[in-house]
Simulated assay, not measured.
Amino acid sequence: MVDKIAYPVQLIQPDGRRVLRPDYTSLVRDIGPDELRALYVDLVVTRRVDVEATALQRQGELGLWAPMLGQEAAQVGSARALRRDDYAFISYREHAVAYCRGVDPAEMTRMWRGTAHSGWDPSAVNVTNPAIVVGSQGLHATGYAMGAHLDGAEIATIAYFGDGATSQGDIAEALGFSMSFNAPVVFFCQNNQWAISEPVHLQSPVPISQRAAGYGMPAVRVDGNDVLAVLAVTRQATQRAREGSGPSFIEAITYRMGPHTTSDDPTRYRSSAETAEWTARDPIDRMHRLLDREGLLDDAFLARVRTTADDIAARLRSGAVGAPAPPPLSVFDHVYTSAHPLVDEERAQYAAYLAAITDTEEALS
C-alpha cells in the first residue's frame, strides 16, 4: 500500500474536474446528482455553523470555539460514510461530524458556553461529545470497538484526531491494542498541517500514515479537501472493520484555514502566502466547480442552500444565547452513574458555601 501513502487519493481536482481512479470511483458509484448536491449542502451548512459559532465567541456568547474552517470535506465525507449503528469518537473540532450524525445545532454550543458538562446525548446519535484531552478518544474508540467485536456487533468505530495528536502516547497505545485484538476501528487523522503553532514536518519527517506500518496496519492518504475521495476511502475502511478484517488508518491531507481556537492568532506563526495557497484548494469551491461542470447548479438550488444554512445557523445561535444558566449544584450531576460518597460530601460543602453567601447578601441588603 506504499503507493496509496505516497500519492493521496483524489477524485475531484481543485478546478472541479473528475479524476479517473477505478479502484476508488467504484466505491462511490451510487453518488449521483442528488447525492452530490446533498454533499454540497452539508459542506455549506457546516461552514455556516462554524462561522456563526466563531462570531458568537467574538461577541462574548461562547467562552471558546475550535474552528474547522477548511476541513469540512474531511469531516462530511467521512461522516457520511458511516452507518446508523457505527460509532464516532471525536476530538474538539469535529462539528461537521456531529451535524452529519444528527446532533441538533441548538445543542452544539452548550459545553463551549459553559452551561453544561456536555452538549448532547451520545447514545442518541452514536457520536461522543467534544474531547479536549488530546488523543484520549483513540483509546476510547479502540475499547468500544473491542467490546463491540466481542459482542458480535458488525459495526465500525471511527476515531477522529489531528496531526498533533499522533505525537501523544494515547494514539500509539490505541494503534497497538487495535492490531493486537483485531478491533474494528478506523483511525481518521485530519492532518491540517499545524498542531497549534507547530508545523507537521517537525512532528514527522515522513507521512503520518506511514506510522501505521509499524503496527502492521493498512493505511491510506487522501486529499482531505475532496469530499468524494474522503467518502470513498472511509467507506472502504469502515467496511473492512465491519467484516472483521481489523483496523485501518486514514490520513486526510487538509488545512486549518483559521486559528487553532478563538484564543489563537495564526498570523504569528504562518505566512499569508501559505494560507492563500490552501485557500485555492477550498473544499466548498471545489465541489461548487464540480457541480457547475456537470450542470447541477442553478439559482434556485443555491438560494435554497443559503436559506438552509441561515436557518441552521439561527438555530445554533438561539440555542446558545437562549441556554439557561444551570443551577450551581448541577456541577455535581452525572459525575458517576450512581451516588458517590465523595461527590455527595463535596455537594453538601458547596451547598453550605452558597447558603452562606446568600445569608451575607441578605444581611447587607
Rank of each mutant, 00 (worst) to 15 (best):
M1Y: 07
Q10P: 11
L11Y: 00
P22A: 07
Y24T: 11
S26E: 14
G32L: 11
V44Y: 04
E52S: 15
Q57K: 11
G60L: 02
E72G: 05
G77A: 12
R80L: 12
A81H: 10
I90N: 06
S91K: 03
Y92E: 06
R93K: 09
R93Y: 00
D104V: 08
P105H: 10
T109P: 00
T115N: 09
H117T: 04
W120Q: 01
W120V: 02
V127I: 10
T128Y: 12
I132A: 00
H140D: 00
A141N: 09
A148H: 07
L150I: 12
I158Q: 05
Y160A: 04
Y160G: 09
G162R: 02
T166C: 05
D170H: 09
I171Q: 00
A174F: 03
A174S: 07
A174H: 00
G176P: 07
S178K: 12
F188K: 04
C189N: 04
I196A: 02
P199R: 04
R221A: 02
D223H: 03
N225P: 14
L231A: 04
G244C: 07
P247V: 01
P247G: 07
S248L: 03
S248H: 03
F249H: 11
A252E: 01
L290W: 07
G319I: 08
G322A: 08
P326N: 08
P327C: 01
P328Q: 01
P328V: 10
S338F: 11
D344A: 15
E345Y: 07
A348T: 13
Y350E: 13
T360Q: 13
A363G: 09
L364A: 15
